[in-house]
Amino acid sequence: GSERDVRAFARPRVVVSRCLGFDHCRWNGDMITSEVVQMLAPHVDYLPVCAEVEIGLGVPRKPVRFVKGEDGIRLVQHETGLDVTGRMKTFAASFAGTLREIDGFVLKSRSPSCGIRDVKVYRQGGTGDTVGKTAGAFAAAMADRFPNLPAEDEGRLRNRRIREHFLTRLFTLAAFREVRAGGDLRELAAFHTRNKLLLMAYSQKEMRELGKIVANPDKKTFPGVAGEYGDHLNAALSRAPRYTANINVLLHALGRFKAGISPAEKTFFLDTLEQYRQDRVTICPNLMILRGWIVRFEDDYLREQTFFSPFPAELMGVSQDLSHRQRDYWEK
């Protein structure tokens, strides 16, 4: 019954900017409220950090910014002339060295230390002219050190598609981390089976490759198999699935019920699928129909598939974007 359908999710360990609801540590003493960070809180273990405070800049403080001059791009407190580039590099390296078993990052958008991408770079000389955009100094160091982990900012996470892809990666990698720690090849095989449809949506090529790795024809040791599996899992999850790939998986699942459902039910499913293809509805209606059939026909294989619930249901939140004001921001 129903208690078997509630999957126990691994708890991802997430590095988060301290200003996103944990502390008044913005340069002006503010704290930012992020719906996504709050929504995630019951399901993850947060590791809050404020790089600017850690390198000795107080609260409140004169803001830092990227300045491009003769000697490249530097992180400078432009009102005082204090260059903190070296301090930030040192802190980021030592902080990264303390991180064990983490699964992802949620960082403050547009911050010169934490921004994932859209951080302004100013021309030297204080004219206020910008010469481009880049990643924040701390965020860039984390991306170098943990290139395969999902990292987003709280602004982009308001977008439903970006959020779903981020959460899928986050919870899948956390589950894999637990399997890897267990050291049992059968557990890894079971993990692969549960994730088959999800992997089919993300990358058929990697799905096949991962199947070969888990079959382990060369009788490698578990750490060897798990290491190789992890590399290909990261590659598989690096890009969000195209809607055409999702449709392919939905049709694949439909095929398991051919014998049991009526022609009218099948037509209803395909009509709903067509609306999804035209982007008039999300994937949710089709998932709900399939979930109903999984219960009705007691399909144990599909019931276990993470494709139908890759992360806790409460995090589906409103399937709409959390704030339409942000639309221009994340579509750039």
Rank of each mutant, 00 (worst) to 15 (best):
191 F>K: 02
162 I>A: 10
104 G>R: 08
314 E>C: 07
19 C>E: 02
113 S>Q: 02
256 R>G: 04
146 F>S: 13
277 R>G: 03
224 G>S: 15
73 I>C: 01
171 F>T: 06
296 R>G: 04
128 G>A: 10
220 K>I: 03
21 G>N: 14
314 E>M: 13
246 N>A: 01
215 A>C: 08
32 I>F: 12
317 G>L: 15
135 A>H: 05
257 F>W: 07
59 V>Q: 01
238 S>D: 07
152 E>M: 04
293 W>R: 02
315 L>Y: 11
59 V>W: 00
76 V>E: 07
244 T>R: 15
136 G>W: 01
302 L>I: 02
141 A>V: 10
70 E>K: 10
256 R>S: 11
291 R>M: 11
221 T>M: 15
14 V>R: 05
247 I>Y: 11
46 Y>P: 02
162 I>G: 05
77 Q>A: 14
182 G>R: 11
186 R>M: 00
198 L>I: 10
124 Q>N: 14
236 A>R: 10
60 P>A: 01
120 K>Q: 03
94 S>C: 07
14 V>F: 00
269 F>T: 04
54 E>Q: 12
303 R>S: 13
178 E>N: 13
4 R>I: 14
79 E>G: 07
257 F>D: 01
40 L>I: 05
244 T>I: 14
167 L>V: 00
161 R>F: 15
186 R>L: 05
187 E>G: 02
252 H>R: 13
269 F>A: 03
262 S>H: 10
214 V>D: 07
199 L>N: 11
155 G>I: 04
128 G>Q: 05
180 R>W: 04
43 H>P: 10
76 V>P: 13
43 H>L: 00
152 E>F: 03
306 T>W: 14
217 P>V: 12
194 R>M: 03
106 V>T: 10
90 T>K: 05
299 D>R: 03
331 E>V: 09
18 R>L: 06
82 L>Y: 03
244 T>Y: 14
16 V>W: 05
320 Q>T: 08
327 R>V: 12
258 K>N: 15
76 V>Y: 11
51 A>I: 04
255 G>R: 06
45 D>I: 13
239 R>A: 15
299 D>F: 02
48 P>M: 09
224 G>M: 14
164 E>Y: 09
30 D>V: 00
257 F>V: 02
109 S>Q: 02
23 D>K: 01
311 F>N: 07
208 R>Y: 10
92 A>R: 01
10 A>F: 12
111 S>P: 02
226 A>G: 01
285 P>R: 00
212 K>V: 04
172 T>F: 10
111 S>I: 06
204 Q>V: 14
186 R>W: 13
294 I>H: 06
52 E>M: 08
85 T>F: 02
267 T>Y: 11
280 R>Y: 07
